[in-house]
């Protein structure tokens, strides 16, 4: 129970910090809107649903990489030392994952809304598409949190982050695009259960591996 309480405090701390500065949310909001608008200027209309879907996931992917890559860097060295003295690594990684998940869910909902307002929305099965977006943002958060933890230990952050994160995220992205395509075409929901199960399983695996591995990263 001690761990849970620590996690709760840490998540609250991150949320409050975010609420005070509103830095991440505002910048991400602008980022999403400007990329959507650039796409709009380039394409005008997207008639092909396949293309619509791919464009949405690409926008979301880059927005989330930008949002999460800062999650460990923004903490100064002294603050990390302070955390080290009061909590364990497990509480920290769990709190980061939960915080990033909340941030990502919020971000992807905003992205989806702006995207579907600017481009015409062809979604057939709205609920399933929403589930896909939700699962996508959760899996982006879990994977990128750990990768950003790894890349924060290296000097030149942004390139290493991209190099490390892309191969890991592509398999997830393949499943996500397939699932959301099913939702777009409004296929029977029974077909998509396999994909949902795979996504959930990958998320569970990544969270457990992060929990197991983060202590080694932390002990530096």
């Amino acid at each position: 129970m001690n761990l849970l309480r620590e996690v709760k405090t840490l998540v609250l701390k991150d949320l409050i910090l975010e609420w005070r500065s509103k830095h991440a949310i505002n910048s991400m909001f602008l980022y999403v809107i400007s990329t959507v608008f650039v796409c709009y200027q380039a394409f005008k209309t997207v008639d092909d649903t396949l293309m619509w879907n791919a464009l949405f996931w690409i926008i979301l992917l880059f927005a989330s990489i930008n949002a999460i890559s800062r999650s460990f860097v923004q903490e100064s060295q002294y603050r990390q030392l302070y955390y080290y003295s009061i909590t364990g690594p497990k509480a920290i990684i769990l709190s980061k994952i939960i915080y990033n998940t909340i941030l990502m869910v919020f971000l992807s909902v905003i992205a989806y809304l702006t995207y579907s307002v600017i481009f015409k929305n062809p979604v057939g099965d709205l609920l399933l598409y929403f589930v896909a977006v939700l699962l996508g943002s959760i899996s982006f958060a879990t994977v990128f949190t750990m990768v950003s933890g790894i890349s924060s230990k290296t000097g030149n952050n942004s390139t290493i982050m991209a190099i490390l994160a892309f191969p890991v995220i592509i398999p997830l992205l393949i499943v996500l695009i397939k699932l959301s395509n099913n939702a777009l075409q409004g296929l029977d929901r029974g077909i998509s259960i396999g994909e949902i199960a795979v996504l959930l399983a990958i998320n569970v695996i990544t969270v457990t591996i992060s929990l197991l591995l983060f202590p080694y990263l932390w002990r530096d």
């Binding site: 290296t154 191969p167 398999p171 795979v198 695996i205 990544t206 990263l217």
Partner: peptide, 24 residues
């Protein structure tokens, strides 16, 4: 240490990639 962490982190996802995705 860091590369070992990445290696262990990436391996299960690679297994999913090579074994489960082609079956789907």
């Amino acid at each position: 240490k860091i590369s070992a962490v990445y290696n262990i982190f990436a391996f299960p996802i690679m297994v999913v990639l090579l074994y489960i995705l082609p079956k789907l």
